[in-house]
Write a protein that binds this DNA or RNA. Sequence first.
DNA 1: ATGAAAGCGCTAACAG
DNA 2: CTGTTAGCGCTTTCAT
Lengths: 350, 350
Amino acid sequence: MKKRTTLKQLARELDVSISTVSKALKNSPEISQDTIDRVKAFAKLLNYRPNNIALSLKNRKTKTIGIIIPDIVHHFFTKVIKGVEKYANSKGYNVIVGLSNESFSNEVINMEMLANGSIDGFIISMARETMQRQDYQHYTETLNEEIPLVMFDRVVAEIPCDKVIVDDTKGAEIAVNTLINKGATKIAILTTKDYVSVGRLRTKGYLEALKNHGINPIRDLIIKIDDELLYEEDHLDVLEKQVRELLLNHTDVNGIFAVNELYAVVAMKVAKEMGYEIPNDLQVIGFTDGMLSKHATPTLSTISQHGESMGSKAAELLIQRIDERVNDLPKEPTKTVVISTNLIQRGSTK
Amino acid sequence: MKKRTTLKQLARELDVSISTVSKALKNSPEISQDTIDRVKAFAKLLNYRPNNIALSLKNRKTKTIGIIIPDIVHHFFTKVIKGVEKYANSKGYNVIVGLSNESFSNEVINMEMLANGSIDGFIISMARETMQRQDYQHYTETLNEEIPLVMFDRVVAEIPCDKVIVDDTKGAEIAVNTLINKGATKIAILTTKDYVSVGRLRTKGYLEALKNHGINPIRDLIIKIDDELLYEEDHLDVLEKQVRELLLNHTDVNGIFAVNELYAVVAMKVAKEMGYEIPNDLQVIGFTDGMLSKHATPTLSTISQHGESMGSKAAELLIQRIDERVNDLPKEPTKTVVISTNLIQRGSTK
DNA sequence: ATGAAAGCGCTAACAG
DNA sequence: CTGTTAGCGCTTTCAT
């Protein structure tokens, strides 16, 4: 196996010491212009490029950050990665991606694999299974080892680290308020089981909006979907069935708020099949502004989550922490940044 | 900044040498059971874990592979990453992601950044701009340095490396044949400019299918969209306009083949707005089986690209090459693996 | 059974 | 202006 050019080779062939070469390459004033030129010319000739790994070992930092997400086949996470990558690259960092696939053990394995020196810090959104188990040991361990960590979207209060979230409750409230203002009088919500933090919070926003308008919530209208593997296979059938039943049992439902765009799109599909006209008979608002929302029929009004902003904000916070750690600066208290949401009005509302 | 436990520390505290500790930790027969036990116990106590970076430096391999894609906000690429990650993880590899964002310079920068020792090999799909320029120097350089490289989907013949592709031509042919068999007599194609290899090949398949059925191609029905930034912003307006014109000028078009799902979905939208009934008045088939296809109205018949299979196949080929290189095995000739496509029939065809 | 030493590629303090 | 040396964390050969 051929090996890349090293300082050592350059030194030998130029008949100077390794450190001279090293210094020359960085234009050290210690070195004569003459040698600098010779070294550089030769280095270029042999296409010398420094070995990142050696630098990482030497500097005790890798200039790469690890992002661990539950699922990459998901527009929102993809946007976040994009934001992270953009900011990180601008600061000279690489991004290494780990997929937990919503599984606790995958999350643990991925974190351990990367925590062993491969990365300078983590950006994570928690796997569903981890939220269910409420076992955050691998997080606290990471923190104990003083590896910086910032969580986004699916966060939990017990873990003392920087966080980037969206105001889920408020976003949901805005959505439901809008529905009400546009004339919806009986509004259902399609949400997740409570252990998914964002689902819980969005449900809370829904309830608050109702309360503020003096509307009593109706248990039947709150559909908590067990979204195991939702994005994986055709487990959407379950969802379809539930929506159909909802619409059958409560024919006067004229508004639906869904906590993600997939639920919203499926709901629209079922409603259309049942003869509903959207938005005239039924108005729908989703959460997360992805591909589906833009291209559904009708196009879906939705609460935008600004994934890319979340990503770059998370990267910014993380890199701050890394600097703090590397330079032994005093530790700032952890912060939680809330990215504001906003409603994007499209065809599914009046 | 707190530092992680190292062999050195263990050695000092246990009052043995570093090499003893190292050996004990791997159960070397050279070491007495007694010391092994002591060392291990103490290591566990201090939560010792070997430093990946040091190992990488020592072993001259990183156990991580770099994947560079044009755009992550894209279902197909996302599937590929998933496949790569799955296979790579099973072999103990990590995956580091670089985004070229369809830009030549980003592609170059990303590759250089990673080629400096951070990764053992690349998996790449070429940026649009690179295809336009036809400047593949950074690829050949990488290859010259004997860094293994496998390309997928957007490949070019001039680069001598392993490749994973889909039979674009055949897939397109199947799509168009299907359209014809189901009664479509005048079929348009929505494709990309020719410099995008997959667009070109799919166009070729379209033309062949027509020829095989004795149908003469009509220039007006071949719409080559300049898809700069297509997925970025609302540049879809252009596409919409073109489809509208097509349908206006050729009212007897009753079949559309689109080289990706977005084009297909947009075409359906425009057609529906113009009063067409799909699939009765107009049948549509797309390429790539993503979220949009599944949830469009009507659901979109499409040629599946099997992104995840492509990803894991690419990872498999790459890791083979890495092994070959590391173990100085004789070099196999480069191969091109063709993943077979198949038609998924849904609501947009009869 | 244990340890010393060299080396992976690089930097930097220190000496000359 | 240039070179020697030590060290980042680890493995491995070769003494002892």
